[in-house]
Each structure stands twice: as C-alpha cells, then as structure tokens.
Design a binder for these strands. Structure first.
Lengths: 192, 192, 192, 192
DNA sequence: TATGAATGAGAATTCATTCAT
DNA sequence: GATGAATGAATTCTCATTCAT
C-alpha cells in the first residue's frame, strides 16, 4: 500500500473510531459532524470526502461492527468443535449475547439492526457471514424442515434474540438478560 | 364542557392529528414544530402550552394509538366469544397484524414501541389494557406455566410479533406478512 | 398600523436598505447574508422570515428601485406639462439617464434589468407604471403606427436606452454618456 | 507538435468543453471547479495550470465563442458577394441571429457580452474581427456620417441587436425573434 | 507536468424557544 | 389562553486553493 493510500485509510479509520465513540457516548442526535472531525483530528471537509452525511457513516459503522461481531462469534463457535447442532447454535447465540452485554452502547446503536436486513445485506458483502448463514441453514434442515421453513425459523430466531437482547440488556425489561436466557434458549429449542 | 374547554380540546386534537400525519409521512426527523403548528392551524406558542417538545407529543401519540388499536382488537376478539385460549390469542394477534397491514405508517412510527415497554406503561394508564394483560396471563397459566414463565412467554410473543410485523410488512423481508403468518402462528403455538 | 405591524415594516426596510447598500458597494457575490443582517441590526433568522435567500431580496430590491425611479421620472415629466410627445418622451428618458448617472451603483445592480421584462412585470403590480406605459403607447400611436408596432418600438427604445446607459455610464464605452446622448436621442427620434 | 504539447492541448480543450457544457446547462453560479475537472477527466490541480479561476475560463470561453461565431458569420457574408452595404449588414446580422436561435444556451452565457466591450477587446486579439469592424465602419461612412458618428451607430446597432436577441430568443418577450426581425431590421435601416 | 487528498474558512440554513402583545 | 415575530446558537455543507507525491 502506498504512503498516500495508507494515509487515506488512517483518516477514514480515525473518522470511524471518532464517530463510533461519540455516537455511543453522546448519542447520534447529539453528535455533530464538527465533534466527529475534531475528535478524529481531521478537517471538516475531509469528512465529506469519505461520507455523505452523519447517517451514512452511521450505517457503515453498524455494518462494520455487526460483521466484526458475528465473525468473531462464529470463529469462537467453530473453535469449540461442537458436534450437536442445537448446542452449537446456542453457543453462538450465547457468545453474541455476552458480547452485547459488555457492549451495551453498541447494542443501543445497532438497536434492532442486528436483524434479517443487516444479516442478509452483510452476507452479500462478507463471505464469512455467508458461511455462517449457510452453516445454520444446513443444520436446521436436518430437523426435517424444508428450505423455506428453515429460512423463516432462522429469521425468527434472529429477530427474537435481537428484541430480547435490546429489551433486557438496555431496559432490563421484563427481567435481566441473565434471567431471560434460560427462557429464551428454551423457546429457541422449541422453535427448531 | 365549557366553550373554552371545548376550544382547548380542539386545538390539542388538531396538534395530535397534524403531528401524526407529518410523523408518518415525512418522518419524525424531518418534521419541525413549525410544520406541526402550520398544519394544525394554531400558533407556534400554542404548541408549548400542550407539549414539552417534539418527542413529548410523539410519545403521547404512540401511546394513544397503541391503546386505541389494542382496545379495538380486544373488543373484536371478545365479541367472537372464542372458548379455546390458543385460538383466541391467535385471533387477537391476527386482528392486530391485519390492522398494521393497513396502517404501515403507524407501524413504522411505533416500530419497536409496540413492545413490552409500551405495553406495561400503557397497562398502568389504561384499565382496558390491564384487562387484556390479565386475560392472556390467566390463559397462559392454564398451560401449566408459573406466573414468571407466563410473563416471559407473553413478552417474547409480543416481541416476536412486533419484529416480524415490522420486517415483513415494511421491508417484505424475508417474505410478505401473509406468507409469514402460518410460520409465525406455528411458532407461537409452540411457545405457549 | 399596529405597533407590531410597524415593527415588522421597520425590520423589513432595514434589511432592504442594508442589502442595497452592500450589494452596490461590495457586490452581490461578496455580500453574505451575515453582512446584511449585521448591517440591518436584526438576527440572522429574521432575514429568512422575509426573504427566501440572497437572490430573492435582490429581485425585490430591483423591482422596488425600478418602480421608484420610473415613478419619480414620470411625475417630474408630467409636472413639466410638455405638449409635444417626442419632447416629452426625451425629457422622460433624459431624467432617467441623469438619475442613473448619479446612481451608478444602482445601474450596475439593475444592469440590463431596466428592460421590457421588468417594465411589464412591474406594470402589473404598480398602477402608476401602467399609466406610464399607457401614456407612451398612446403617444406613439399618433405617429401612425398600429398597436403592435407601437409596442415593439417602445420595447426597442427601452432596450437601447438601457444598453447604452450601462455601457457608457459604467464602462464609458464607446464614449461618456454625455457625449452619447445626442446620438442616442437622434436615434430615438428616427425610431418613432 | 510534440506528444507532450499535444497532450497539454488536449487537456486544455477538455476543460474548455466541460466548462462550456456545464456553464450553459447548469449555470455559472452552480458550476464548481470540481464539476469541470470531473467532466473533463483531469485532476483538480490541472485546472489551475491553465486558468486562474472560474471567471478566467468563463471570459476565455466567451471570447473564443464570440470570435468563432463572428468569424463564421463574416465568412458566410463575404461568400455571398452582396454589393449593397445595407443588405450585406442585414445579412450578417441575420446570420448571427439564426445562429443564436440554434444556440440559446450560448446566447444566455454571452448575455450582454456580445457587446461593444467584447467586440473591441476581441478586435485587438483577432485580426479577422478587426477586418469586420473595419469593413462595416467603411460601409457606414458612405452614408455621409463622420468617423465618430459611424462608431456610435455601429455601437448602438450591436447593443440593440444583442438586447433584442436576448429578450426575444430567451424570454420570447415581447414577441418571438422571428416576429421581431422585421421591426428590428426596419429600425436598423433607419439608424444607418 | 499532473495528480487528487486535504484543508478550513465561510456561507447558508434551520429551528426550538421566548416573550411582548 | 393564544399568538407569531424575533432570536441566534448550532449545524450542515461547499469549494477554491494548496502541496506533497
């Protein structure tokens, strides 16, 4: 990578890092482009060289973070070499839940964006996610479902996990995530 | 009601109607207080006599609309005099889904607000909702669950229905709501 | 006029005066809304209460000034009670030329906007201008021209006077306006 | 011409073409250097190797186009070998009018620049224009005018034609150029 | 010569909130 | 209670120009 290219990458990353930090601590609404560039240590115009506006960088951050988190989760899951599919799926979900527990602000930012939409969009862009999707689809099919039902169930699991995480981790409603987990996992077992 | 009282009520209602219309068509972010008062045909200052700010009126709208919708749904459900609990619950959910199908904009507005939070908050304020809550709780208990599990399952059903509705009605992902319904209902049956 | 109404009028006039002063001295391009409101002694937001943007106030200034100037010219002309039409027309034109000679900046601002377009637009809005138009049309018809030719000749006189004024007063090209006048008047005489 | 020279020439021409296209379609005000270099397919810095700023390239474009148009007009006129001066002058003017009718955007761009100023400036730079000027001056003198009057009349004809073209071709005010032509030509005949 | 990333001053515009009437 | 003109801080966004490569 040339020096120029390196420098560009560095600036873009500074902007990502600054925006993420500010969005999660001050909130999206309370973060001005000004704040982002100041924190990133670049000129205001530079922001517009890389992003259209505040919502452009937000979308890209969510995609990056989702991808990153899911990739990490699948790597950790695969490393465990769990044979039983149900166990494997729950381990994967648990990993993500624990991660979000430690990153409440990320969860807040992504809100219910850790959903089918992002999952599908991200799948196209990142081949690793494609593999996750494929793996769980294959696993579910073994339970005697056809392709369509498999997709639907996978979708509903994702939606349910996302909703429950948000509600219980952020709002502690109707209970803490640790108390919710057994009920959630029980429900997932019933769903597959 | 005195004429003055009537007039006040009328102004407040104008503001509600105008804000709802604008929030659903232009989006919350793109609606200014100015737009609301213009549409409502009242002076800017008047807005502040009734609401603290944009988010105050938004919260109140969501509460009003949710309450209204849920009340209507329970009334229609009760009118059917369905004996079987499962059937009754699904009828209730189906009624709401059909309603949201016809009111996409409302769904978008309430997105992620037709959740436990609103449900509980609303329960306190409106005795009718309290009754709904009570009714389904009682019904679920008959399935051999204790009080805690009952609450959790009810919560998860609400979350799941909300997420699925949003995704399938608004984004048509992963499929249309009509195609999703059988899968969703099957899942709910398993959950209770 | 109520106190509020008076105050509004005053603010609007301040903005007009400030913008005119700045446009003529610094140029349109070099005048910022900021400059205008500072000079006018009103808040920035107030500007947008009365005008859409810089070009909106510019258009309105040109219309006001044109109207004002032409009204004054026709009043002075009528006061002279000149019987001969040609003489009267030339007096009117001379009055305007002299005025523009003393208000080079206005001329620059209006550039070639003292033309048919403005004349017609203004005619509709200000009945006084309508009268000017009517008066000269009637006068010209006496020279044996039909209505159409009358309009065309009037139009061409206005265009010619405007162009010559701009070129000779502002650029002193091809000669000073005082030297141009005899040639211009001679040409006009030939035209009618 | 060396390959380097050729390349430079090509870049400069690209910039001219891009700027002309953008100025005429989007307007001068709404065209940024950025737009020009993007369209031209050269780097931003390259622009500054050839032009001082936006107005520098604008002036040069107008000069090039005017020169080009007038040269073409005079060539076509001379080719006709018209003996009568009046007829020759009107043919020349007519040629330009027809050209501008087909190039409304050019006319808009040159608005008020196809005037004495440009004419004189251009005369110095391009010997062909000098000849045009000389030819018409000589022709006019035959009508018994002295040198000064000749210049003035020529000037006024140019101004009048320019104004009328702009108004009638662009604004169709007070009538279409085709309807204006007889009146305009009649007036010019009277002027010389 | 040519490039194009970076700059940052500065321009435009918005809008919640106040307060005199 | 109701009004709506006025405010001005805050924010977004533009763009000519520079300069290291």
């Amino acid at each position: 990578m040339s020096k120029v290219e390196e420098n560009k990458q560095q600036k873009e990353n500074s902007l990502y890092a600054a925006a993420y930090e500010l969005f999660t601590t001050k909130g999206i609404h309370n973060t001005a482009i000004n704040d982002i560039v100041n924190k990133a240590g670049v000129a205001k115009g530079t922001f517009y060289l890389y992003f259209k506006d505040k919502y452009d960088i937000l979308d890209k951050i969510i995609l990056r973070k989702s991808n990153q988190t899911l990739s990490e989760a699948i790597q950790m899951t695969n490393a465990k070499k769990i044979q039983n599919f149900e166990e494997k799926l729950l381990y994967f979900i648990d990993y993500i839940i624990e991660y979000l527990k430690d990153n409440k602000l990320l969860l807040k930012l992504m809100y219910k964006n850790l959903s089918w939409g992002v999952f599908k969009k991200a799948s196209k862009d990142f081949k690793e996610l494609n593999e996750i999707h494929h793996m769980f689809s294959e696993g579910l099919k073994e339970y005697g479902k056809d392709e369509y039902d498999t997709e639907m169930v996978l979708f509903m699991i994702i939606e349910l996990v996302g909703s429950v995480c948000y509600s219980s981790i952020i709002l502690e409603e109707p209970d803490s995530i640790d108390n919710m987990k057994p009920v959630l996992f029980e429900t997932i077992k019933k769903m597959i």
